[in-house]
Design a protein around this nucleic acid. Structure first.
Lengths: 329, 329
DNA sequence: TTGTAGGCGTTATCAC
DNA sequence: GTGATAACGCCTACAA
């Protein structure tokens, strides 16, 4: 025997329309009818079929996050899992679920987005790893899709977004090093086109300006957030420097390794505050990002967008954490 | 204008049935008709609606993984992300997608499973963090749900499953320490009821037996896989020991910290080979688990189950990695 | 080889 | 307040 709305209706001696009304808390049902229907529902253990609802309502209750294939470091970022947990938790509060998937290599970066939109698999997207002139953003805008980005690109401030205050973070980090008397802070930034890199560079520069110091462009390098790139960039750097500020803890750790091999000691500052930061030797000074709140807020934002059409954007504060790596002398 | 199968049919001058046949590669379509239909499909940019298909076929193409709330360490396990990547990659090969979510705290552990089954949101499940007499397994079996477990419980060997050879791993680790002349290997196992803990304990014991040595039960402790538990267990241990084997790298790292504070040096072996293992000081000897293959195989298994009804189980080899932490003298 | 038509389970629009 | 009934978009007997 099929357990559907018709069966419930039959047993309760009402029409399917009435059952549906009860299910959707419509006020257009008398108290008595509602109670009777609820009783039957409970008795039969009836639960509405989500797919049928989706077909009717044209909403699947699914939000997709697609990890760019190039963005290995997203996965290597130990806090990624906390981010995911907070996202799914917030989504569930409104009955949404997270579809998580990865891009294929050598692939059109918007292929999966197109598939999900064409086949109407998801209601919205969360975009990670934002770049300037991001193809995905362009595509989704074009298709009038609903999405929220993590990060802020300068070319799309009309988008709902959640970001940490990368500029302020880089400013704090750099200022701290300058305050300690350092003058040539080697800045190992992330990839050039990434929105976080752009903001962090601004922060770095702002700190120099504030102190009235001249910025030396050759001190600004671009890594890929991974440990090896921090290691290599320091190892191969031919100029002078008296401190290092890396745009990720992993690169900072790589930098520390390189310094050790080169038998040099200078203050080193990271960014993120991943678990390793407090476990390596020396423990790493860094900028802590509230990754859990980023997860919560981005989920909150996409839900608001989907349910109420509200485009919410937030910038979250970051915190300077001083440990051993900057306290060398 | 709605773009659906009927519209395509109209434009191609055929019936919806024919279009459907073309879409599903039925041989019951003439070459000419097929080409014509495909042409129209291309021209209109028609793509079948996934939800409508799901309703008809009673398959959503979704596989759920639900992270137990208690299993924080799953998230703290840095390789979790690699696991997810491999899972989604393999699922996508057959058109499946991953629904990832977290349990709510203080909640019936099978609540989410029930919801997903009742509402028919997903086709199958991947179960992580398996325990003996696992409630979730019991529930899903009861409901005749399709699922694959990561791990092997002794009470359910009829389930499709993927596991690493935990027993062999623990055997290798313990044997290595015994071969070095250690006799009192403090074994910091995971939580008692976890299937991995049970297998690893077997391996530990087997190594002792093989050497004809007596097993000292007081040397076997239970932690929770996290760093602090390794630290505390060692710090508070009152017996004698001349080596440590921890069932996770994180606990091994905690143990190393405790030893350092206690001014003691003994060989320490971990389990997992997480990234930190090669970054801490001293670098950590450990048992490497092929987490990427676990991801691939578990996805492969659930797809085979869903598509062909085949229950596939696999046990994957692990590898002994010797670094500095065991080479102390 | 192709078409007709019913049904998957729900919701929304009408009437009553 | 409540009940028929027609969609939503697709697939599949069954008939032709």
């Amino acid at each position: 025997m099929r357990l559907n709305i018709a069966e419930v209706a039959k047993r309760a001696g009402v029409s399917t329309a009435t059952v549906s009304r009860v299910l959707n808390n419509s006020p257009l049902v008398s108290r008595r009818t509602r109670e009777k229907v609820l009783e039957v529902i409970k008795e039969l253990g009836y639960v509405p079929n989500h797919v049928a609802r989706s077909l009717r309502s044209k909403k699947t209750g699914l939000v997709a996050t697609i990890i760019p294939y190039s963005a290995d470091y997203v996965f290597n970022f130990p806090y990624f899992s906390i981010f995911i947990r907070e996202v799914t938790k917030r989504l569930a509060e409104d009955g949404y679920h997270l579809l998580l998937t990865t891009e294929e290599p050598d692939d059109d970066p918007v292929r999966i987005y197109r598939t999900f939109l064409d086949r109407k698999i998801v209601d919205g997207f969360i975009i990670l790893d934002l770049k300037e002139n991001d193809e995905r953003v362009k595509f989704l805008k074009d298709r009038m899709a609903k999405f929220v980005v993590v990060g802020r690109a300068k070319d799309c401030d009309d988008l709902p977004s959640v970001d940490t205050d990368n500029m302020s973070g880089a400013y704090k980090a750099t200022s701290y090093l300058l305050d300690r008397g350092c003058r040539r802070v080697l800045f190992i930034n992330g990839p050039k086109e990434h929105s976080v890199s752009i903001w962090r560079k601004e922060g770095y520069k702002a700190a120099y300006k504030k102190k009235g110091l001249k910025i030396e462009k050759s001190l600004i390098l671009n890594g890929d957030f991974m440990e090896t790139s921090g290691y290599e960039l320091v190892k191969n750097f031919r100029g002078r420097f008296d401190a290092i500020f890396a745009a990720s803890d992993l690169m900072a750790i790589g930098a520390l390794k390189a310094l050790k091999e080169m038998n040099r000691i200078v203050p080193v500052m990271g960014f993120d505050d991943i678990p390793q930061a407090s476990m390596v030797t020396p423990t790493l000074s860094t900028i802590r990002q509230p990754i859990d709140r980023v997860g919560y807020e981005v989920a909150d934002s996409i839900v608001s967008y989907l349910e109420k059409g509200e485009k919410i954007s937030k910038v979250l504060d970051v915190e300077l954490i001083i440990r051993e790596s900057t306290e060398v002398d």
